[in-house]
Simulated assay, not measured.
Amino acid sequence: MTTVGIATGAGRGTGEACARRLADRVDVLLLADRNEAAAAAVAKELSGSGRKAVTEPVGMDVTDPADLAALARRAAGLGTLRAVAHAETVEPEDADWRGIIEVDLVGAARLAEALRPLATAGTAFVYCASVSPLLAHVEPAPVVAGVLDDPAQEGFLDHLREAIGPALEDPAWAYPWATYGVQRFTRAEAVRLGPVGARVCSVSPGAIDTPQTRLEAARHEAVQQLIRRTPLGRTGRYEEVAAVAAFLLSDEASFVNGVDIVVDGGLCAAVGDE
């Protein structure tokens, strides 16, 4: 049996770190990224490093159903889907509110729809979310929760904007709603896939050491305070998030399902109910 893995956002950041972890776990690893050249560079490096997996770059827009269908067909044609690390996301600084929700939440739901028919006993999925909904104390009213429960529906963005109100148009507010939606979707997807023996979890990083985080910390005292209040006294690394994702995708986590794992150095514990 040929085992297949998929890492999205694999051309950089957490997605790349997850790809490096998966390269010794499966026989064939598809590295999907909007920037196919970046994914190809990672695939070339991994192919020359003596890893177990044969790596293959895939240019893919997670918001494009045709691209997702092509990814699913390719995975199905190669073998049995074993592990999916979905890290194709955008930050509040990189898109407007529609772009954030479309990529981070709707993209995750569409990816799940495309790959759901391939799930079987032992298949595991991990979706990247964020601690931002925990810090922002996102608590949806029933009408909002009802909309969030169907992120793949026609007109989802407009329905969500109507339910939440104009505050959603602020990217800094859209991001926690989108990542909360990912956490919520993960729980529902775990219930859907459990009967076939497949698992689904999410990972919510805190402040990770990226050029953008360093820039935001230099500009905003609030970001500096969050880092200072992290009990471990530092930002995290992509590799530390990928290590948790790799565990959740492994057989060692065979009874871990439908949960969100926070990887934040203790920030949420320190902030508490503030």
Results as ranks from 00 to 15, higher is better:
Pro205Asp: 02
Ala242Thr: 06
Leu68Glu: 03
Ala217Asn: 04
Leu71Cys: 09
Val62Lys: 02
His137Ser: 14
Leu157Asn: 05
Arg82Glu: 06
Asp260Ala: 01
Leu115Val: 08
Ala269Pro: 01
Ala83Tyr: 00
Gln212Val: 12
Pro140Ala: 02
Val62Met: 08
Ala246Thr: 03
Leu193Val: 05
Thr3Lys: 11
Glu216Met: 11
Leu31Thr: 08
Ala39Tyr: 06
Ala17Tyr: 01
Ala72Met: 04
Thr235Gln: 13
Ser132Tyr: 09
Leu71Gly: 11
Asp27Tyr: 01
Arg21Cys: 06
Asp264Arg: 03
Glu139Cys: 12
Pro166Leu: 04
Gly197Gln: 06
Asp24Ser: 05
Ala145Gly: 14
Glu88Gln: 14
Asn257Phe: 12
Gln183Phe: 09
Glu189Ser: 13
Arg116Tyr: 03
Glu240Cys: 04
Ala270Pro: 09
Arg74Tyr: 01
Leu134Gly: 10
Thr179Asp: 10
Arg25Gly: 02
Thr89Ser: 15
Ser47Lys: 09
Ala242Ser: 04
Ala242Glu: 03
Tyr127Ile: 12
Gly59Trp: 07
Arg184Ala: 12
Asp24Ile: 00
Ala37Val: 10
His159Pro: 00
Phe185Gly: 04
Gly155Cys: 10
Thr186Asp: 07
Val42Arg: 00
Ala141Trp: 11
Leu168Gln: 04
Leu168Phe: 10
Pro65Cys: 10
Asp251Ile: 10
Glu91Asp: 13
Leu111Val: 05
Pro117Arg: 13
Ala152Phe: 07
Leu267Asn: 07
Ala112Ile: 14
Thr80Glu: 13
Asp64Gln: 06
Thr80Trp: 05
Gln224Cys: 11
Arg229Asp: 15
Thr63Asp: 06
Thr8Glu: 09
Val90Trp: 08
Ala76Trp: 04
Ile164Arg: 12
Glu189Asn: 12
Val26His: 00
His220Val: 09
Tyr127Asp: 15
Ser254Gly: 11
Asp94Pro: 00
Phe185Cys: 03
Tyr127Val: 08
Val58Phe: 07
Val223Glu: 11
Val54Arg: 15
